[in-house]
Design a protein around this nucleic acid. Structure first.
Lengths: 226, 226
DNA sequence: TCGAATTAGTCACTAACTGATACTAAAGTC
DNA sequence: GACTTTAGTATCAGTTAGTGACTAATTCGA
């Protein structure tokens, strides 16, 4: 580790902002402030007594110009992986914003996650963790809905879920479980999108329901280092 | 925030060690080092250049005397909630250990989570987050198995899951999904536990299987702040 | 104008899973 | 030996998930 020591708090707050680009997940990067002009995640040395949530929220606003649709702490990253600030510890946040939302501020740029420029090792592991966390969060928070405009077609919604989850979904099953969860209500508007039959527009209007509270999910155990 | 400033790293690593006490979840607390003699979570000011994982691992060993059965980073906690160290930031870890394992070291004590002594606010929120995280992790990591002795009955396994999840499970369903996941193998031993029919002993012996990869879980959306 | 192509939306069928109850098995207790 | 207690299994009905096939409504080109 280096010996950098400045006035402000001794750790950085870093932010992984994700969005749905055309048909791919994308991360917001900033033209590196200091050293080599490389791209970095947006980050900041918070002043003391600022709360982590406040810092990350304002960092998001300063990067995309408005409040994030979803934001959550990822965790602390350190462990010798290099960081542009030379600070030992970074607290990372994940956020998601609709791409159409007032575009990124000057100096920021969207990069598809499959084709990122070289990043500091610590930033690279943050991006990986962020994508994983987003996929976990997608069915616990209404992220997909918040990335869409207020009125959307069910096909758009399904494509958003497919993009976020990184896998194809079956149309009939998707709509059945959407129906069962009573999360959307149909409007009386239809939108014709070029070729085929027009699609009905829906709005996000969740009605509280009790969770089913299934049993144990042993099946999830198969995956990783058992 | 206070103005404490010492030589070592400017944040603490704190640990929430959980175990299955008789029929309740319990947390390991330490008799407060400094101030008021209150109980605290085990914590430490790491020396620079130590990795977070290394610090938390050794912290666990120093508290319970052996390696934790499961350990995972919870996240960073700050935000003005008081901490015994007076340091601005703490990185928290959750761990689980079998209770029978070489008991806690001197100065440490198990407390049922339903009946905790007064804790620093930051520690209290760590404990809450830890329990929630444990419940999420239970069906992604073999925590229940590692909290049991190498040979166990299926009733013991079920009771461990019930304790960790904080809810009752259905016997037949539990065994059916356990079977489907092919995680245990029967031994030819049986154990008679007082009254009824003896129970067969099993060992944890997972055979890798592919995950099922279900669709979208809209049903999970009903719960919290939508 | 009439089909072919295209996209939206639904149906019906099957397989799998869940939860409940009831049952058999093997031990101890009186 | 009858009764109680715990382990373990079987069966059944209701629910859910995945699949392909179907109908509906529109555009495009011949």
């Amino acid at each position: 580790m280096s010996t950098a020591r400045h006035a402000s708090a001794p750790f950085t707050v870093d932010l992984v902002v994700l969005t749905a680009l055309t048909s791919e997940l994308a991360v917001l990067l900033e033209k590196g402030k200091g050293n080599s002009g490389r791209w970095t995640l947006p980050w900041r040395l918070p002043v003391r007594s600022e709360s982590l949530n406040a810092v990350s929220g304002r960092l998001a606003v300063s990067a995309v110009g408005s409040k994030a649709a979803w934001i959550e702490q990822l965790g602390a990253f350190g462990d010798g992986r290099a960081h542009p600030s030379l600070v030992q510890l970074s607290v990372a946040f994940v956020a998601a914003v609709p791409h159409e939302m007032a575009g990124p501020e000057r100096g920021f740029h969207w990069f598809p996650v499959r084709d990122l420029p070289p990043l500091a090792p610590r930033h690279r592991s943050m991006v990986e963790a962020a994508i994983e966390r987003l996929r976990m969060a997608v069915d616990r928070a209404p992220i997909a809905f918040r990335l869409l405009p207020p009125r959307f077609t069910l096909t758009e919604l399904q494509q958003m879920y497919e993009l976020l989850l990184g896998k194809r979904l079956h149309k009939a099953s998707f709509r059945r479980s959407l129906q069962a969860a009573s999360l959307v209500t149909a409007t009386d508007e239809w939108r014709s999108e070029g070729r085929g039959r027009p699609a009905q527009l829906y709005t996000f209007a969740p009605k509280r329901k009790n969770r089913p509270a299934r049993g144990v999910r042993f099946d999830l155990l198969g995956g990783t280092g058992v």
